[in-house]
Nucleic acid binder design. Structure first.
Lengths: 360, 360
DNA sequence: GCCGCGGCGGCAACGGGTTGCCATGTATTG
DNA sequence: CAATACATGGCAACCCGTTGCCGCCGCGGC
């Protein structure tokens, strides 16, 4: 029982410890932050007193002078989107190793909210990982000027970036569809503020050139199940036999929307997604999709961020590119032969709008 | 162009603004934190100068004296679990209204990690929402002694709590299964550290009593797809016609596991889940499940937390209970009649272990 | 015996705001 | 016109650690 009276609910400070251990506050401070700078016996005594009093160093006060909070921010575009879960895990793992706390910020797919949140948080963290940022390039650079920043899923000059090899993923998807006999691929676009959205479309354009597959784009749609279902409606008006969706959630929405309208996947339409989220495996039919190394994305970005925080210059040359792979499941199949017709067989002259038009 | 030379990369402080606006630092401080305390013209001038210089108040420095950081922590058990997404959204909404920043902490289903993270973060936030905490009661109380805390999905004396009406949800599920002719329900347990897990089991026991339905429990299993698949294996060894799973992810795992072994859902076995995650709607067959008002959970808990932070006494009497509802989809059906047999028809004498034992 | 050096601990300034208290100056009231 | 009240702004202490610098002490070398 400490004879020193501690008012309850009051934090214990180095001054309390110093008083109790009969040393100066600076010695207490050093006992924790620079143990080599103080006699080991004294340090031990201080540590024991601190323990007894329940002393915890106040990170805010420490940060005020050192301007290091041992916290990093991880900003994700949409917590509702399961892709981020694995990215978060990867980031947390690395951060924890380096004794950093990760604070997660959900931008809710909003440029404005993201900026506001970053603005507020910036000064309390040592660095920031922007995963799929919806902010403008200039806004990102502004942030990067004030704090170490690593950008994920987006390439940007002068700021360290980690991206996945989407062009290769798109290429593999296009090859796969081509091999199945498809000569036309419709890209269902996601948010225009999303950088990979542009990359994927351009990659598809390019792959289409080389593989002699025609491509077109519809959208943009919201990158959600609902967005996919809306896309399905539009697909009915402008039919296709092969669809590449911006992400898995949209792809699943498309499959559902199409099925509801009596279109068979993969019989009538093949659908490919992006990300390989868990649901891609549980939906019927299983979704063929381009899988990204999500965990690795999170950990790579964070590792890079930590080295920057430790003083290394941000490697701003080329973005770090992580490999992807095509996971083939049951949502893609050989093209439904529709001899002599430009349009696929399932298209009725007047596509029935709205839900539930099951074929007999 | 300010004539005052600002060294680049250096933060602008109230002293800079004070110098430029020709007032004392305290006046600048008040101009922001207590505008009524300073002449409105002066305040306006100060604000303009601050704007011009790009001044931002340093939240750490402010917190040092006020011990208010305008941040709250939201600790979730597992970011991989989609239920938390909506909870997070609800919490963020309310927090944002009150000008608070939400920092998310993922406990990764680990008591130890959760404690460590809370320990580290506690002193930098004004309050904490513990959503599905895996910590011990005493650990939670310890935290609650130092900071305002609201606990979600768990009831605990002396700490404000928000819970869902699981007993009623279980009761509704049992009634539903009973009406379909099931006289035996197997509960597939989730993590033992999860408080709702115990509640759900006990509620099922009770409902079984009243409705004259036999109940039993298997598990615990991990509350994931994989956990559900393992449970499916065990269900083969100890067959059942009706299953209530701890959550949707497990329920979906069970459906998949059973189908892989040739068991039909809902033909042979009815499955009910908990939470009504998005995937419950996209899995085949659609999952019958007990839906919780996730968004409301997050917002209610946070609202309560904010009032506590503003000084209101935490309402620790009875936990706040939110209503649930049963969402009936296709994973439940009339019990497969298996006349004169104690065991359901699909059980072979020696259940085939391992995957893929499709019936002809 | 004197000097230099290394180990250790204290002093005091600092980081960036916040706030209690007081000194003005002006408006209100009797 | 004196007395009082209020609006406004400055001074200085404080929040809690961190760190540059200095002084003290003991030891070894010349």
């Amino acid at each position: 029982m400490p004879d020193h009276i501690r008012p309850p609910g009051q934090r214990v400070t180095i001054y309390d410890v110093a008083h109790e251990a009969d040393v100066s506050p600076s010695t207490v401070s050093r006992a924790f932050s620079r143990p080599s700078r103080v006699n080991s016996e004294t340090a031990e005594r201080i540590r024991r007193v601190a323990e007894r009093l329940g002393y915890r160093t106040n990170p805010l006060a420490r940060a005020l002078t050192t301007s290091r909070t041992q916290m990093i921010a991880l900003v994700i575009a949409d917590i509702t989107n399961p892709v981020y879960a694995e990215i978060v895990r990867g980031a947390q793992e690395v951060a924890a190793e380096g004794e950093y706390t990760t604070v997660l910020i959900d931008a809710q797919e909003s440029d404005r909210l993201e900026r506001a949140a970053v603005e507020r948080t910036m000064s309390t963290v040592d660095g920031i990982v922007l995963a799929s940022s919806r902010m403008s390039d200039s806004a990102i650079r502004m942030v990067a000027k004030q704090r170490p920043v690593v950008v994920l899923n987006r390439a940007l000059a002068d700021v360290p970036c980690v991206v996945t090899d989407d062009p290769r993923g798109v290429r593999r998807a296009a090859e796969h569809l081509g091999e199945l006999g498809h000569d036309h691929i419709t890209y269902v676009a996601g948010p225009q503020a999303s950088w990979p959205n542009g990359v994927r479309w351009r990659s598809l354009l390019e792959a289409g050139m080389e593989l002699e597959i025609k491509v077109r784009q519809i959208g943009p749609f919201s990158p959600t199940l609902a967005g996919g279902e809306r896309a399905a409606q539009e697909l009915c008006a402008r039919p296709a036999t092969a669809v590449l969706a911006f992400n898995d959630q949209m792809a699943i929405g498309i499959i559902r929307g199409l099925s509801r309208m009596g279109v068979n996947v993969p019989g009538d339409v093949s659908v490919v997604g992006f990300d390989n989220i868990l649901a891609a495996d549980i939906v019927t039919p299983g979704l063929t999709t381009v899988a990204a190394p999500l965990y690795a994305e999170g950990s790579a970005a964070t590792r890079h961020l930590l080295t920057m925080i430790e003083g290394a210059p941000g490697h701003t040359g080329r973005p770090m590119v992580l490999p992807v792979r095509l996971v083939v499941r049951d949502s893609t199949a050989v093209r439904n032969p529709s001899p002599g017709r430009a349009r696929p067989a399932w298209v009725r002259q007047r596509p029935v709008p709205g839900p539930a038009a099951h074929l007999p």
